[in-house]
């Protein structure tokens, strides 16, 4: 058994990854805080917390609430702005042998493009564009809830970006496949999904909302089946690669996502209850492949139709 050779490396938009495992934006900072618990060199890539062209203060607290097998968050994309990000966070990550995916947020097309341009000449491997941000110019409706806006923002960032562009899709839509097709038509190199599902929790003892923001994004194991369904639907609809995420908390969950059509997988909320889960999943995927004598992980991608 032990002599059976396996390949866990994947090619993602032309970027070789030693394995398909990364972290979900916003759950891992820029890796610094986790680096004395997790060997970042083991990960295929680190995906960083969303960064804008200037610092964002985020929402009032409470910003998180626990729900059954899940959680709600309304952090509000607090971030230090692109300058500090490049000087501190990116410099930190470049010490490691892992790929860097930078998650980008903005309130307008100009703000997204600004960040993308600032990153153009840096040593970043891929950009992930979070289109769940409210578009201030269009009355605060998220870019990710309207296919026309999603296509427009994809085109805008594509013309300025030097790295491949991953459009991160919101699950808060009627037809996720339509959103993915709009991004592909706009020139996206890849899509990632799912972002969080809008939810609400009420504290019955205090008779108030659990989150200061009233609503928050739901994540964690409770959303996993929804994420698997959406990754599958998107995989059938587009020809660009997918990063699958949403509730991944075990090797089995990660394999499921790959079988549904994801080339890479991100682990998010699970980092909060199992800080070394990413390493366990990297090792677990290898064990799974040996157990079922699968020589190449690429044979698993979208294998279930």
């Amino acid at each position: 058994m032990s002599e059976f050779n396996i390949n866990t490396a994947v090619d993602f938009c032309g970027i070789p990854m030693k394995n398909p495992v990364t972290v979900a934006s916003g759950t891992f900072g820029s890796g610094m805080e986790y680096s004395d618990l997790v060997d970042l060199n083991v990960l295929g890539a680190v995906t960083t917390k969303g960064v804008a062209n200037h610092p964002w203060a985020g929402n009032p607290t409470p910003r998180v609430a626990e729900t059954k097998s899940g959680m709600l968050n309304a952090i509000g994309l607090q971030n230090p702005g692109i300058d500090t990000f490049i000087e501190r966070d990116l410099a930190f990550l470049k010490q490691y042998d892992t790929r860097v995916i930078v998650n980008v947020c903005g309130h307008s097309e100009e703000e997204y493009v600004d960040v993308v341009e600032r990153l153009a000449d840096t040593d970043v491997d891929l950009l992930e564009i979070n289109i769940s941000c409210p578009n201030v110019k269009e009355g605060g409706i998220a870019f990710g809830q309207d296919p026309k806006q999603a296509m427009a923002i994809t085109k805008a960032v594509k013309t300025k970006a030097k790295q491949p562009i991953i459009m991160k899709l919101s699950p808060n839509v009627t037809d996720i496949a339509e959103m993915a097709r709009a991004c592909e038509a706009g020139g996206a190199d890849a899509v990632s999904l799912i972002n969080t599902l809008t939810g609400m929790k009420i504290d019955i003892h205090r008779r108030t909302f659990a989150l200061a923001n009233k609503t928050g994004g739901m994540s964690g194991p409770a959303v996993h089946p929804i994420a698997v369904r959406m990754v599958y639907q998107v995989a059938q609809a587009v020809n660009i690669p997918i990063i699958g995420m949403g509730g991944i908390a075990s090797t089995e969950d990660a394999i499921e996502m790959i079988l549904a059509g994801a080339t890479m997988v991100s682990v998010g909320t699970a980092n909060f209850f199992d800080p070394t889960i990413t390493q366990k999943i990297v090792a677990g995927i290898e064990d799974y492949m040996r157990k079922y004598q699968i020589a190449d992980i690429r044979d698993l991608i979208g294998a279930v139709r």
């Binding site: 805080e33 230090p80 980092n271």
Partner: peptide, 25 residues
């Protein structure tokens, strides 16, 4: 309220009188 407990998720912030060293807010 906390989620990560180690400074990564930015759930547990309190307002400070001066700019913080992490997020410049």
């Amino acid at each position: 309220r906390m989620a990560c407990g180690i400074g990564a998720c930015l759930a547990c912030v309190c307002q400070s009188t001066h700019e913080d060293g992490h997020s410049n807010v």
